[in-house]
Design a protein around this nucleic acid. Structure first.
Lengths: 120, 120
DNA sequence: AATATAACTATACAAAAGTATACCAATACT
DNA sequence: AGTATTGGTATACTTTTGTATAGTTATATT
């Protein structure tokens, strides 16, 4: 295959795919996104509980990340009119489906570790 | 389910899964990893060609990222004893399989965009 | 009136990631 | 000797991401 053909082939890589990958990366990149999403998946929904479960995250980061996830349509914030006020964070339908991406990442990561150990 | 049970359930989330996800994130996170891996997948292997294909990347970043990918066992660097010297970067077996992760990211990203457009 | 609790916010800072611009080394060609 | 080519490095920045530490608001409890 000629260099030109290859170049054209690359240019054909659909823009919507690039956008889709970037959207996904935005949602899962960073130190705390995965721990937060995983905790929500496991049924932890309140600020203090998330903070305790994740361990070393500061309230500033937890707040910031939850806001970003909410803005990205991955998390929904629910306010309950009790005293003291109770607030719960839940994954949206999209949010729950990130599990599929996590699964593919786990699969790749495990296989890769085995291969690296074999090779040296 | 009690809070305690939930907590224990979370603690059961296997450490090797956490490591696997982190390994994968390390390989795909950042502004340039995906463009580089995609270019390699599409058959572009030389430094200058990668630089041209990716567009706005500086040689410093391309060099740095390729080194990191090599260190992580995702890319292999081959030196050809020609004049002038020819160097090629190729994905390892592990590297090629990142396509599966990319696919799941594309799928999630596309679905998520549709859902966000629907909801508003 | 003092203390406790949930759910944060504010300010200042440090570290990591990325950019801009210029330069280098080896070899071959003219 | 001067120029071109490939495959990078070096230095100095700017931006983004994450940390540390303290404070706030609203209500209820003692």
């Amino acid at each position: 295959m000629s260099d030109l053909k290859e170049l054209l082939e690359v240019k054909k890589c659909p823009r919507q795919y690039v956008l889709a990958v970037n959207d996904t990366l935005n949602v899962i990149s960073g130190k705390w996104k995965m721990p937060i999403i995983a905790s929500l998946l496991y049924g932890i929904h309140r600020f203090k509980d998330l903070q305790e479960n994740i361990g070393k995250i500061t309230p500033r980061m937890l707040s910031k990340e939850l806001k970003e996830l909410e803005l990205n349509g991955v998390v929904e914030r629910k306010v309950f009119n009790t005293t003291p006020v109770r607030i719960e964070y839940h994954l949206t339908e999209s949010g729950k489906k990130i599990l599929a991406v996590m699964d593919s990442m786990i699969e790749w990561g495990l296989e890769h570790r085995e291969r690296v150990v074999e090779v040296g």
